[in-house]
Design a protein around this nucleic acid. Sequence first.
DNA 1: TAACCGTGGTG
DNA 2: TCACCAAGGTT
Length: 349
Amino acid sequence: MDASVQEIPERLLGWYDNHARSLPWRAPPGLPAPDPYRVWLSEVMLQQTTVAAVQAYFAKFTQRWPTVMDLAAADDADVMSAWAGLGYYARARNLLACARAIAARGGAFPDTEAELRALPGLGDYTAAAVAAIAFGRRAVVIDANVERVVARLFAIDTPLPAGRKAIRDAADHITPDDRSGDFAQAMMDLGSAICTSRSPHCLLCPLSAACRGKEAPERYPVKPAKKAKPQRGGTAFWIERDGEVWLMRRADKGMLGGMRALPDDGWNARADGNGEPPLAGEWQAAGQVEHTFTHFHLSLSLRLYSGSVHARTANDDGEWWPVTRLDEAGLPTLFAKAARLALALRRDD
DNA sequence: TAACCGTGGTG
DNA sequence: TCACCAAGGTT
């Protein structure tokens, strides 16, 4: 093996000792691990989500639910509302399920990767990350940063996903027995600040001497082409009475599952909505909201009910919500946009 | 295996 | 402006 490859862990940890980002869920390099609850919570929030987006949510959750026992005892609706805006809402449902599983075993997280992997919402990455960061276990932690850094270090040009086997073997090879949590976080910091996806800064990289891909780093890893996102259309409905608006609770499975929402006409990723309002009467057009999800674009028409509303609007799962407290309803971003539009229109009246 | 599942930043 | 991207997991 190339001598420079053997030096990777030491070089990277040396860089990390001086350049580690200071984050609320992280212990400074070399210091004792933070509370496993905070490590786990941050890792789940950080799945496919930027550090900048997570910061405020992490502060809110840890202030409101300081321990995993507190979180386990929370109401589902409160947790879903607190997660609103962060996206990938299955994470919040799994977060609660996991917290309750931990509470059922006394409040202590398991300290091995295999046991962690069996918990809801913890896949290969998160189980390895928590085992390494919170419990000091040696684990091969592979996220998109590590994937990119390792593919470049070893010039692995097998297209993903097939290339993941070689990437994992290489990552395993350079993961040290000691400080594997710091090593994982160092790889992620390096990927975030130096070995970035679009414009890597090889001149600043502590691993450039060992890097076989530095001549053309943007070549790695080789990714498959993305599918085009279809354009869909749908309608959301604003029904207001006595300063309250009718909100639904979406089904647990599928898009925006478990979240509060405006009633809609059944639009989804595969089909436009049918345009049918939830109750008969007079409706007025209130404009459009454009929103892009992971796999499709949506042009949402907002319609306002202009008739009188009886006590019961629909026989579905819903509730009247005070318009002045809409920011507390925990609407996902699409419906928060629609609500903003409706409120702007009201003010103009 | 591949489709599904949010959102905000960015080059 | 817009396609790409991010500390992925589930089915």
